[in-house]
């Protein structure tokens, strides 16, 4: 409770300081809007339903992209963990690709899929898959050998052991992978939307920028940040904490 209190004071203080500084500086809203301007823009966006459509469109793309990347990442991670050859070859490629921001694929994606949903989803999938693959691979490689020995003495081997011991034992890594995949996918989505077509939060941000509506730009930025942290905090961190506790990995 004390933590929430401190955070409340901090954020309220931040908004007040922002308002006062912009008023004192005398900047116009097309250079640096005040919190009140941003609030107005936000209200306007929701009442004319632009932001509602944007949220719907962005979340649909994100959801499709994330589902594909989690499935693909899990499968690839298992492959890399189980096959030394795949790990040495495909694994090296995936590590190299991981250091390339997924947005740089957009020109190619537009050539392949056109300036549409598919291109954006492609970027989201690229953003999420690699990090999920790397975590899933680690999860399977780091199953405690004791679990495997115990399973063997209980007559569990091969595919039965994989399904009943190795997969569940790798869940903590998979959950971390999902959380990171979401974060990467969310960033990739925003970048792709700014550079491609609407509706979508990123597209509206670009559109507002073209018309010099900095209040709306900041409103969208705040929405992106708030949604990102709410999903991370309320969904992924909570799941991760529960899994760590159950799996006995939490030290307290």
């Amino acid at each position: 409770m004390q933590r929430i209190g401190k955070q409340l004071v901090f954020f309220v203080g931040l908004v007040i300081a922002w308002e006062l500084i912009v008023r004192a500086g005398g900047w116009t809203p097309d250079v640096m809007p005040k919190p009140t301007d941003v609030w107005e823009a936000m209200k306007r966006g929701f009442s004319d339903r632009t932001l509602v459509y944007d949220l719907q469109a962005s979340f649909t793309r994100l959801f499709i992209g994330l589902v594909i990347s989690l499935a693909l990442g899990t499968a690839l991670g298992i492959l890399l963990a189980k096959s030394k050859t795949a790990d040495d070859t495909l694994g090296a490629l995936i590590l190299a690709l991981q250091s390339v921001p997924s947005i740089v694929w957009l020109p190619l994606a537009i050539m392949w899929f056109g300036l549409n949903e598919k291109a954006v989803i492609f970027i989201v999938v690229l953003g999420g898959t690699l990090v999920m693959t790397i975590n899933m691979r680690m999860g399977i490689k780091n199953v405690p050998p004791l679990y495997i020995r115990a399973a063997e003495t209980m007559g569990s081997k091969g595919i039965d052991q994989f399904i009943r011991v190795i997969l569940p034992a790798s869940v903590p890594y998979a959950v971390t992978g999902m959380r990171l995949a979401w974060a990467f996918a969310w960033r990739a989505l925003m970048a792709a939307e700014i550079l491609s077509t609407g509706p979508g939060l990123g597209y509206t941000l670009k559109y507002a920028s073209d018309f010099g509506d900095m209040s709306l730009v900041i409103a969208v930025m705040i929405l992106i940040g708030v949604i990102g942290s709410i999903v991370d905090l309320l969904l992924f961190q909570r799941v991760e904490r529960n899994v760590m506790k159950r799996w006995g990995l939490e030290t307290n």
Binding site: Y147, R149, A150, A169
Partner: peptide, 25 residues
């Protein structure tokens, strides 16, 4: 399964409850 083993660490599976662990074999 004709030889049961107990290790120094319990080697119970943390994702299963006690009953499910005992039923694992």
């Amino acid at each position: 399964k004709d030889r049961g083993m107990v290790f120094q660490q319990s080697a119970l599976f943390p994702w299963l409850n006690v009953e499910e662990n005992v039923m694992f074999p």
